[in-house]
């Protein structure tokens, strides 16, 4: 076109020069005008933090003088860490729920990699690179339809993932153990597999795995209803339980070696006997 047409780079440089002129000519001094608003907002932030701390303390501890009591905002502390007990449902802090729930969307083990690192990495790259692919000068929302749609979709998906992660059902050992008789009749488990079934219900397996619909798939671990049909063998099952990542490189499953050989053998018998509904 015409030789005098300014390039996009010239346009934005000129705009920033105009910005500097305008601020110099018509701007306000940061102190005290903008700083007043900053100070008020900072006071609000500190007040909110103190209020949260107070509500946490006075609803968790005050009723029973017990820090492990579940108050409005959760207990002040749970039982001491014990690598030996495995019936604890792993749960991150709330701002990781969206990542946590993402794992549930992808199926174990083929695509779980997408949930753990694939999607988060792509999202992070898109976020960092935003100013380098959205290079238009335009800042008015009415003229940035793609940006607005992108923002709405991002907020919606983060909100839904966080909400789903927060309300995902947890399998409590006391509830799961009640299902063991159903498992025995549904899968026609032999008597030798019964101790293993009870152990499976209380040892924390159902924090990540499901069995005949019981348990939680929060972390995307596989359903074990028909694990026995793969005929992996009792020796393999024991080795796998002792050190999952040794047998299955990259497996995020914790080690269960602390259960001891006898109980691991019981679990392995149960798993091998699980051939699905009969």
């Amino acid at each position: 076109m015409a030789a005098g047409k300014p390039s996009a780079v010239d346009e934005r440089r000129a705009q920033f020069a105009r910005y500097k002129q305008d601020v110099k000519a018509r701007g306000k001094s940061f102190y005290p005008f903008a700083m007043f608003e900053d100070t008020v907002m900072s006071l609000v932030v500190v007040t909110v933090i103190v209020a949260l701390a107070a509500v946490w303390k006075w609803t968790a501890w005050a009723p029973h003088h017990l820090g492990t009591h579940q108050g409005l905002l959760g207990p002040e502390y749970t039982a001491p860490a014990d690598p030996g007990t495995t019936n604890f449902v792993p749960r991150p802090d709330w701002y990781f729920y969206f990542l946590f729930y993402l794992l549930r969307i992808f199926k174990w083990p083929e695509t779980v990699f997408l949930g753990t690192v694939g999607v988060p990495t792509i999202a992070l790259i898109l976020l960092i690179a935003l100013p380098f692919y959205d290079v238009r000068r335009e800042r008015r929302l009415s003229r940035r339809p793609v940006a607005v749609v992108g923002l709405v979709l991002t907020i919606l998906s983060m909100a839904i993932l966080t909400w789903k992660g927060a309300t995902a059902s947890e399998a409590l050992a006391s509830e799961v153990i009640a299902d063991v008789p159903n498992w025995i009749s549904a899968e026609k488990l032999p008597p030798a597999a019964v101790p293993g079934a009870k152990l499976f219900a209380v040892a924390g397996c159902t924090a990540c795995h499901t069995y005949l619909g019981t348990g939680s798939s929060n972390l995307g671990a596989p359903d074990l209803t028909t694990i026995g049909t793969r005929n992996l063998g009792i020796a393999f099952q024991i080795r796998h339980l002792q050190c999952p990542s040794c047998v299955n490189p990259g497996s995020p499953m914790p080690k269960f070696a602390s259960l001891g050989t006898t109980r691991l053998h019981e679990l392995a018998v149960f798993l091998e006997a699980s051939k699905g509904k009969k």
């Binding site: 110099k24 701007g27 940061f30 102190y31």
Partner: peptide, 8 residues
């Protein structure tokens, strides 16, 4: 820092 101009 304190007396720099910001947009009105």
């Amino acid at each position: 820092f304190l007396f720099r101009k910001v947009p009105a």
